[in-house]
Design a protein around this nucleic acid. Structure first.
Lengths: 228, 228
DNA sequence: GGCCCATTATAACTTATGTTGATGCTGTTA
DNA sequence: TAACAGCATCAACATAAGTTATAATGGGCC
């Protein structure tokens, strides 16, 4: 972990349900999340909603904006969010000049791509309980990476409706599935606090592979960008 | 469209079912597909298969290899494939030196990311007929971009099994759904040749949005990389 | 021309997940 | 403290998609 204080960002705050970006509106600054969760999603004309990405502390939202690509989907805060906002131009410039920053950005992009790929597998081929198990493993791994897990427990602020929109299920079925997971002694989830008993078993259930995903660059741990 | 003949690639050929890359094996060269289709996929322990990306003519396979990231999923040819293989190091170098190449690579990466996002929406929230409709629109758009459509028709080499593994369905249900699409006069599909009657209606059915996806860079058409 | 294998096609039956609707929590605001 | 809104919970019922099985094509090859 290296600290690059060559770029100065400004602190930004969002309240739950507040939009970080809207479809089609140019973004001139990226957000490096410090605290809280956000998501990107699409709403179909008849009201169906699918969340296509989750942003957790330590994630960039969104690297594509760096190149002035217009967002094709809105991004909204799921909880209160604290972030550092950094001008796209500044990142672009730093990226040109420093190898380590380029490399950090690539790492983050590829990690994101792999999570997307995991979600495709989840949605395309897994049962409800497998999807939720995988998701909880993913949360655990991502939060662990930024020191937000406490053993086998962590804050999991998504409502059952949010979970449904991530996992491609209905809220009712999420509820049913959580009930089963609880009754099988796999998890404990109350007031947005998730505890995973038997992490290994849940990993197996969710067909979660931490393997190559952890050290994508052939074992070389990537740098993380940190702003002053 | 600009031609960059600063990098020389070597012609490569693969037969259907031949692997372009295997999980975990370092790739030192990328492939720019000239002809034929390939896919990336994951196999679950019990045999379920999900295709997570399709590579069509004009696509790079895969940009992540440029930074020496190990593939976490295999890539296999679905038809005979003709491609240009280019050393990762050469692309990296060109990328450092030329703005237009950097920009072309970003464009391709973001286009890929948006297709992935569309697939997540497809798998998470759409019915079988909506998924297949969307998929056929996507094929039409992508093939059109490289001059491989003939009006409303084009070569579509996927078997029903392949389609099932892309759309997260069973082959039986793909068959059923195709039958319905045919009987509703929406498409004609025989001997790997697809004709879409009523493209607009199928776009509506599949909830396909060509909008921002076509000109991601705020209306500026991206450069395409072409090798000598 | 005839055989073979992969693919396509269909039908009958099963099941996971969706739908509807009612009830009860819980945290927030006045 | 009451009233409210957003969630969580649960049950009964509906349905899209999965499963299994068998038959019909159709293209490649000797």
């Amino acid at each position: 972990m290296l600290s690059h204080d060559r770029v100065d960002g400004t602190a930004s705050f969002f309240r739950a349900h507040q939009y970080l970006a809207r479809e089609g509106e140019a973004q001139h600054r990226l957000f490096l999340l410090k605290e809280g969760w956000a998501c990107r999603f699409r709403l179909l004309p008849d009201g169906r909603r699918q969340i296509t990405a989750l942003f957790l502390p330590g994630n960039w939202c969104e690297l594509a904006w760096m190149q002035n690509f217009l967002p094709d989907q809105p991004v909204v805060a799921l909880t209160n969010v604290r972030a550092t906002a950094i001008p796209a131009a500044a990142i672009r410039q730093q990226c040109e000049q420093h190898v380590d920053i380029r490399s950090a950005i690539w790492s983050e992009m590829i990690a994101q791509e792999r999570r997307q790929s995991d979600w495709i597998i989840n949605l395309g081929r897994k049962s409800a309980i497998e999807r939720l198990s995988h998701l909880f493993c993913e949360f655990h791994t991502r939060l662990h990476a930024c020191g937000l897990t406490y053993g086998d427990q962590f804050a999991m602020p998504l409502t059952q409706i949010d979970l449904a929109d991530v996992a491609g299920l209905t809220p009712v079925h999420v509820n049913r599935t959580l009930r089963e997971m609880r009754s099988r002694g796999l998890i404990e989830l109350q007031s947005k606090w998730l505890r995973i008993f038997e992490l290994d078993e849940i990993r197996r259930l969710g067909l979660f592979e931490a393997g190559l995903r952890e050290t994508p660059n052939g074992g070389v741990a990537p740098l993380r960008l940190v702003c002053a």
